[in-house]
Each structure stands twice: as structure tokens, then as C-alpha cells.
Design a protein around this nucleic acid. Structure first.
Lengths: 225, 225
DNA sequence: TATAATTCTTAAGCAAATTTTAAGGCTACT
DNA sequence: AGTAGCCTTAAAATTTGCTTAAGAATTATA
């Protein structure tokens, strides 16, 4: 799930980004209207949601919203506005936004509204497993046959990604994009290193690895039939 | 738990009533706005939740909502709306509702939202504990194995937050938001300082801390299995 | 009201863990 | 056999958290 934030106040922008990243979203940031519009238009099909500040240097939120709407009808847009009369909000909605939220807002509320718009509202899966391995998002734990396994943050995200896509091929480019949040072509051996780390922690010596290599493509964790 | 449904479409009304009754709620039904408002006002303190249709013959949902809000501030109200632009929902919230749900909705989702709103009204837990540590909201005291522990206000709130989320990860962003009420300050080191203080007061030298650090994410207090 | 005490926040140095880079060896495929 | 892609390892770079101490801010006390 990828989110674009267009917000010039860096304190707010960073806070929101941090929070959303902790929740597992990948986040792009633009600190002015022009950049924001550019990003939005360039990656219009990529974003699952756009958070738009109302007042922006250069190009204001409404104009961005209108322009985006001309290109793509469906991406949900939420206005972040400091103005406090309802009329403004209505104006924002008329320009094609889906929701708005007034500053200062609580992160929780923002998240709730995002979830509503993403229809992600249905209680999210919090436990993933494959074989005797279990990953719990809420507790942030991984166990292998009852025994806890200590994973670093990146190891955890990578395993989570595999388990969310259990049975499916996970392409290297996708992995880099989803787990490392890098969206341009990037050839690096980080993945290899982390696959190695995961295997060391999760596999039993002698047995075949829980993570299958698919040469030239990526990796896969088999679903237990 | 008593719920009032104000809804003119009998098929929906019955569907929801059946479902809620099976879940153990007692349900009152009104099939038009006037009856609905009457019931709501007559039994204002009785209802734990009100489900309000948006478009109603006679008196519409918003008006009912506004009137009810004038009499009683706290009864949770959920709008059921067939309109499909979000600005309607926003208006609904503006008029004092707590949540809204769009038709067609799954019963499951409705139930989930009801539970969320009711949880806020539930008689609150007043004592939290983990291991030999006990925190009493009412008395505003903390003890470690019978012995009192003196905590400052912030230390107390932080510990309270951990204990309310015993067993789950507490992400830094959430902590800053819930305990410090800061919405735009994600990289503050206050947390570290207070973690340090809590550990000094609660941990036993030599033993592992009651508060586990989850690098890159936050902290956690393990639930005593 | 002034002063003292306590509590809260900021900042900085340090330590440690994580992440990335890089390089050489290995393996499967053509 | 050659080669591209993958594995493994180790060291460099970076991030993150811990600990302190000092200055602000708040609260209590004289």
C-alpha cells in the first residue's frame, strides 16, 4: 500500500510518514504543490491514497486535486486542512476529494479514515504462518514451533512480505519496492544477504529451505497444501 | 445492552435486528423519523447505541441526530447511509454522529463498529498488572510486589499505556501521540529518557528489563503467560 | 509573591545493533 | 566450459537507542 503525502510543514509530514511507515505503508513525500502534482501524475496508478495539504506554496491543494481527478477517477484523496469552517471542507470535497481532516488531528483518526477509504476496514489479518513458522503483527513476534525467533526489522518485514504472499512468487523488484521502499531500478545484493539471514534463523540444517529460490525471478514460500 | 434502530426499509431493519438480537442485544425499532426521535428522547439514558438511517420519511436522520445531541451528549450514534459520496458522511459526523456506514454493509462490519463505540462506554478496567507490578488507575498508585513505587505523572501514563497494551508492540509514534499528546513530533528523545526512568524504578538489577526494546519499532511489556 | 523543589524536555556523547556494500566462491543453466 | 545469478562472509557505514546532565517549566512551599 503506497501513500503520497503533499505537505509543506515538515514536522507534520514527517510525523505522518513515520506513523504510516510503522503501519506498513510505503510513503512518498512532496513538500510543495508542484512536486506533489508531478509525483501524483507520474505514479497515478501506484498510489492507494493521497494526503493533500490545503494550503501549499506554489500550487494549492484544490488545484492539485482537480488536476489529479481529470487523470484518474478513483484514487482516494484526503485533505489535511488547517482552516476551520465547514464550508472550506465542502469546497474541498466538491473539488473531488473523498474526505478531509482538520489539523491538528490525531494519527489514529487519520489512520481510521485511511482504512475506511481503502476498505481495509475489515479486520486485518494479524497472524501469518507457513509450516511451523508463525508471525504475529500485533505482538511483533515470530515463532518456529513454539520457540521464539529473534528477527531484525528488515528480516521481519521481509518474512512478513513472503507470508502475505504465501504460495506466490515474490519478484526481486517487488521485494525491493515493498520491503525496502525503493521504487527505481536498483541492483543490490541486500536481498541475498537478508534471504541468507532468514534461512539461517528459520531453516533446519539438512532439510530444504522454507524459502525457495526461483532463479532469475525471485523467491517463494510454499503454502502448506 | 440496548440498541435503537431508526430505519424505514423493513428488510434492512429486520436483518439488522435479528442479527443484533442473536448477539444478545435488546433492540427497539422505529420505521420513521418521528417515532425514532420520540423513542430516543423518551429513553435517552437507556440506549447504549443508536443506528440512524440517513434518509427517512418525515424527519431525516441528521435532524434527529442534532436534536438527540442537544439532550444527551454521550450516546453513540452510527449513521446508515445509502448515499455514496463521502461528503454526506462528513456532514453526518459534523452533525454529531460518531460513525457512519454505507449501505450495503456487512453485518460483521456493523457489529465491529458497534463494538468499538461501546468499548468506550464500558466500565473501565481500573487495575492493570504485569508480573509483580500493579498499576491502579483509581488510586493512582503503582506497586511492585506490595511495595509502593513512586512515579511521576508522565512515568505513570507511560506505564499505563504499556500495561493497557500488554503483550503488544507499542510503536514510538503511538506512544508520543497517546502519552505526550504530540501529533507532530516523531523524533523526540523524550521516550528514551522516560523508558530509562521507568526501568530504573521497576527493574531489578541483573535481571532483564520488564520493558523490552524492539529496535526500530518501539517497546513492549510481555504478558505473563 | 518569592523561592525551592520537582518534573519535564532537550541535547550530546557513546555503545551497540542493524543495514548496506563489496568481493570471492559456488551453482545451475545454456 | 562459460556465464549470469545466487550464496556467503566480513567489514564499513549508518541508524537507533541508552545514558547523562543541564536548562525550562511547572508545582509546591515558605
Amino acid at each position: 500500500m503506497r501513500i503520497l503525502i503533499v505537505e509543506d510543514e515538515t514536522s507534520i509530514a514527517n510525523f505522518v510518514r513515520e506513523g504510516l511507515m510503522e503501519e506498513g505503508f510505503s510513503v512518498d513525500l512532496a513538500d510543495n504543490g508542484k512536486k506533489g502534482l508531478q509525483l501524483a501524475l507520474d505514479n497515478i496508478t501506484e498510489y492507494d491514497i493521497i494526503l493533500l495539504d490545503w494550503m501549499l506554496p506554489g500550487l494549492n491543494g484544490i488545484e492539485i486535486c482537480r488536476t489529479v481527478r481529470k487523470e484518474n477517477k478513483s484514487v482516494p484523496i484526503i485533505f489535511l486542512t488547517a482552516k476551520d469552517t465547514v464550508d472550506d471542507a465542502v469546497f474541498g470535497l466538491e473539488s473531488g476529494a473523498n474526505d478531509y481532516i482538520r489539523k491538528p488531528f490525531s494519527f489514529e483518526e487519520l489512520l481510521a479514515r485511511i482504512r475506511v477509504l481503502m476498505r481495509k476496514n475489515e479486520t486485518e489479518l494479524l497472524v501469518f504462518s507457513a509450516g511451523d513458522i508463525e508471525l504475529n503483527i500485533d505482538k511483533h513476534t515470530v515463532t518456529k514451533g513454539e520457540k521464539p525467533v529473534e528477527l531484525t526489522q528488515k528480516e521481519f518485514s521481509l518474512l512478513e512480505y513472503f507470508l502475505r504472499n504465501k504460495g506466490k512468487v515474490c519478484r526481486r523488484t517487488r521485494i525491493i519496492e515493498k520491503v525496502w521502499d525503493l521504487h527505481f531500478d536498483y541492483d543490490s545484493s541486500v536481498i541475498d544477504v537478508y534471504i541468507n539471514a532468514l534461512r539461517k534463523k528459520l531453516d533446519e540444517p539438512g532439510k530444504t529451505s522454507i524459502i525457495t529460490t526461483i532463479r532469475g525471478i525471485g523467491y517463494k514460500i510454499e503454502s502448506d497444501e
